[in-house]
């Protein structure tokens, strides 16, 4: 009690705390001297700690494999050319390509090619494995039944460690997919250590860049809900297959349709 009173006496509070209702920004923090009060320093530090832990979190390969199997989806466990997080952070090129073992694995179990549209689904850790560990399966639980209803052929799901978005292009090529959906952990923000991003690419092939993709961002309970994300993803997949495009061209179409 004494400690609390002393802290209150030392800290200049700001009489505009009511403005916090308008923004999530860290306003009206008060001060001691010119410094930010300790309580806020610790809360900031904790948010940063969560973000840092998310960057170094590991994909829970076995539990995810089990959960996906329950959904009826066979799983390939793959790894990029980036050996570890240290290399992953400094060599984005290596995070975009599969290592030799993973290539051999995919070449080995290729199903015979058929002309109907096939969807490759990739789960990659990206910059927050936590996001994938938390949100990928709940999202797929909503999406898979929608895709099965329209008889889309689903290829085995790939779980990729140390992967970036573009690694989906190589995997999808090896799987002979028509379209690839990559679920990946986004760069953690201070208030969002577990934000999942989704990238859709039509006729994926190695060497494509961001303008060839459509993106759904910030999938997590505090952001875009699983249901809303699944609905949007389902719509994008159908439109992409129908119009045979993805990326900037599909976005333009989206504008026209909405307008």
């Amino acid at each position: 009690m004494h400690k609390h009173n002393l802290q209150q006496a030392l800290i200049h509070t700001d009489p505009w705390a009511s403005l916090r209702a308008f923004t999530a920004a860290r306003i009206a923090l008060g001060r001691t001297g010119t410094a930010i009060p300790l309580q806020e320093v610790l809360s900031f530090r904790m948010a940063h700690a969560h973000a840092r832990d998310a960057v170094y979190s590991l994909l829970q390969v076995e539990p995810l494999t089990q959960q996906l199997t329950v959904l009826g989806l066979p799983v390939n466990q793959l790894h990029s050319q980036a050996a570890d997080r240290h290399e992953y952070l400094q060599r984005p090129d290596k995070g975009r390509r599969l290592n030799e073992g993973s290539v051999a694995q995919l070449m080995g179990n290729n199903s015979p090619y058929t002309s109907d549209a096939a969807i490759a689904i990739i789960l990659a850790d990206g910059l927050s494995a936590t996001a994938v560990n938390h949100h990928a399966v709940p999202l797929l639980s909503q999406l898979i039944p929608l895709l099965q209803n329209i008889n889309l052929r689903l290829l085995p799901v790939s779980l990729v460690q140390q992967g970036r978005v573009a690694i989906g292009d190589e995997i999808a090529m090896l799987q002979q997919a028509t379209l690839v959906v990559v679920l990946i952990g986004e760069r953690p923000g201070l208030s969002s250590p577990d934000s999942l991003g989704i990238y859709i690419t039509y006729q994926p092939r190695v060497g494509l860049t961001d303008e060839a993709r459509n993106c759904i961002s910030n999938v997590r309970p505090e952001g875009l809900s699983y249901q809303a994300a699944a609905d949007k993803l389902y719509w994008l997949i159908r439109e992409s297959l129908r119009l045979r495009v993805s990326g900037v061209e599909l976005k333009d179409q989206e504008g026209l349709l909405n307008g």
Partner: peptide, 19 residues
């Protein structure tokens, strides 16, 4: 505010830092 840019998702310097 508080060095935390809630739109660009990165950390910079705060009003307090400038003071």
């Amino acid at each position: 505010p508080g060095a935390d840019d809630i739109m660009l998702n990165y950390q910079s310097t705060s009003f307090h830092d400038a003071l």
